[in-house]
Amino acid sequence: MSSSDLKKPGTTVVGTFVRSQIVILELFAFGFALHFLQQSNVNAQTIVAMLLFCVFTFTLITGKGFPHFRHRGKALLFLIIAGFFSLQGAVMFGEQRETRWAELRESDPAAYLTELHDADEDRWFAELRELDPESYAAEAAQRAAQAQADRLAECSNEKTALAYVMIQEDVRRSLRAPSTAEFPGRYGAGTRNMGNCVYQIVGQFDAQNGFGAMIRGTFTGTTEYFPDSGSWRTLTLDVQG
């Protein structure tokens, strides 16, 4: 065995050790750079960390990317560091924003509400009630009007046919032989959308009476539609036959 053969294993171990130390130094430098950026600008640090997180994720999955980080093991280590600083930066940004908003709420409520409106409209509406009651009343009225308009838009004339179908179950309950009831495919004259999600239904049916004979009956009723739940409720019903 030659002396060169004896040196190869030692050289390999030394080389591996050196490379591992270099990676550790790179990780330390990478983390320090993100920490330094975090101290000066949390928002910028979070964006940079998230972008790097995406880059390292791509490298980890595909094995492609920047030549220096194409090794998946190295990409994973840097991915962990970038992910940690992404989460930490997001938390710190949220804490700083809350602190600034608390100060702004006391010093300049109008500016606070303006900024809050763009970031969190539901929270803005809740804060508006305490900080600007008049604007809150106007906004509440506007939202109520819009909600009513949206509700009525759901109660179109096209739902008249559905209202005719939905009221049939209550008609059956009033009959002696509900299972024998048969309804024409279309409602009768006088059926209409009365507005405010209430429909008047006029129709007829064939069903067995107490003696088992099929007779023709009629019914008139009103039913209400609830857009929020998609449910119906019969308000009035008069069955003849």
Rank of each mutant, 00 (worst) to 15 (best):
Y225F: 15
Q39K: 15
A82G: 02
Q96P: 00
G31N: 09
L34M: 11
L76I: 08
V55S: 10
A102D: 12
E26F: 07
D206Y: 04
E95D: 12
S20K: 11
L235W: 03
T16F: 12
L52Y: 13
M1T: 03
R105D: 00
E103Q: 14
G89E: 08
N196F: 03
V48Q: 04
A213G: 02
R192G: 00
A153Y: 02
Q146G: 05
S229V: 07
G188L: 04
G31K: 06
C197P: 02
V18C: 05
K8N: 07
F211T: 04
P9V: 05
N193D: 07
P133L: 10
T12L: 14
Q200C: 00
V239G: 11
N196P: 00
E134P: 02
M1V: 08
Y199K: 03
S156N: 05
G203V: 02
K159S: 00
E106A: 13
R173G: 02
I215A: 04
D228R: 10
A189N: 10
I47L: 11
S156C: 01
L128A: 08
E127Q: 13
A181Y: 10
L235C: 02
A119C: 00
F205P: 03
L51R: 03
M92Y: 05
A111M: 10
V42W: 03
L104R: 10
D228E: 14
Q240V: 12
L25E: 06
F226H: 11
L52H: 03
T57M: 13
G185C: 06
E158I: 04
V239N: 09
L60Y: 07
G203T: 03
E103R: 12
E95S: 11
F53L: 15
F30R: 04
T16H: 03
E130T: 14
S20A: 14
L113D: 03
P109K: 08
L152F: 12
A102V: 05
L128E: 02
Q148N: 10
T99I: 11
G241M: 04
E115V: 01
F226G: 00
G15I: 06
F58S: 03
R151D: 06
T99S: 13
A29N: 05
G241A: 10
R19D: 15
I167A: 04
L6K: 14
F32Q: 08
E121D: 10
G190V: 02
D118A: 14
E134I: 14
G73K: 05
P184H: 04
S3I: 09
A207K: 09
F30A: 07
V198S: 07
Y112I: 01
T191C: 02
I215K: 06
R216W: 00
E127I: 03
P67Q: 05
T16S: 13
A126Q: 14
G83H: 09
E115D: 11
M194R: 13
Q148V: 03
V14H: 09
K64E: 15
S107M: 07
F53H: 06
I61Y: 09
S174E: 13
N209C: 03
L34P: 05
S179E: 13
P109S: 11
S3A: 07
